[in-house]
């Protein structure tokens, strides 16, 4: 598979804290889960990939363009979808206007956009609410409006930061189905706290800890790790046990001063 997203030696520092520490990662078409505790660097990575945060050091390539250049950034932004962890909206906007506004910002042509906006809103199950004001929607619905604006331009690279926050269990099941569908044609990178999202929807999982990559592999391989470590009484299912096992090992490795390498078990 062709690599669509590639970072090398990526380092991000905010004042004195290091959010990402020389991270090397490649992503191809499919759904990629980004797991890790708070402060692991997931949001920093997503923001760099969304071209809105500049890396302190390192190389970022999206869809064959280097993100250091303005022309490359603009070209990639047309083919990018991004759902931030938190976002606001203008008070008077309806769902249709909100998603339409983003379509306009993404330079979609007016002729195609009206239908595309309706399609994106329908895909997140809000067709019935398309002319409702966004401020009248519940938290979970606003989240879905956020997903709709991210997918409105049928992006080649879709970055979702905590998309399932605020969704109820049934909506999450529906959302995962949408993710799998999107992952057949695009590179979807999803950061999440919820291990079960990864297990259900992702083709690959990247586990981050303290700004480094602690593990990469398939969800099944992570679950196998968890099965092997069954003696340890942590987690409710194999993949959670795998997650905890990897984190423990990574922390122990970092404490022992070894270089935290990338464990590949595929």
């Amino acid at each position: 598979m062709t690599t669509t997203v590639s970072v090398g030696g990526l380092t991000v520092r905010h004042r004195r804290t290091t959010a990402l520490d020389a991270v090397d990662l490649d992503f191809a078409t499919g759904v990629h889960g980004l797991l890790g505790p708070n402060g692991a660097g997931k949001t920093s990575l997503i923001r760099v990939l969304a071209t809105i945060a500049a890396p302190t050091a390192g190389r970022v390539e999206l869809l064959g363009h280097d993100m250091a250049g303005h022309a490359g950034r603009t070209a990639v932004r047309r083919r990018l979808g991004y759902l931030p962890q938190e976002f606001g909206f203008y008070p008077g906007f309806t769902v249709r206007e909100f998603v339409g506004y983003v379509a306009w910002l993404k330079e979609m042509s007016g002729a195609a956009a009206a239908a595309t906006v309706e399609r994106a809103v329908a895909r997140v199950g809000l067709a019935d609410r398309i002319d409702t004001k966004v401020r009248r929607l519940s938290g979970g619905m606003v989240r879905r409006v956020g997903i709709a604006q991210a997918i409105v331009n049928a992006p080649d690279v879709l970055l979702l930061d905590e998309p399932t926050a605020g969704l109820d269990p049934e909506q999450r099941v529906d959302f995962r189905a949408l993710l799998r569908e999107l992952g057949t044609t695009s590179t979807v990178i999803v950061s999440t706290h919820l291990v079960e999202d990864v297990a259900a929807a992702c083709t690959e999982v990247t586990l981050m800890e303290s700004g480094r990559v602690a593990y990469r592999g398939t969800p099944a391989a992570l679950a196998e790790l968890g099965e092997a470590a069954e003696a340890e009484d942590i987690g409710d299912n194999p993949i959670e046990r795998g997650y905890a096992t990897v984190l423990r090992r990574h922390r122990a490795g970092a404490a022992a001063g070894t270089v935290a390498g990338t464990e590949v078990s595929r």
Partner: peptide
Amino acid sequence: EIVTSTPS
């Protein structure tokens, strides 16, 4: 944050 990630 959304606006910045668009080409406009």
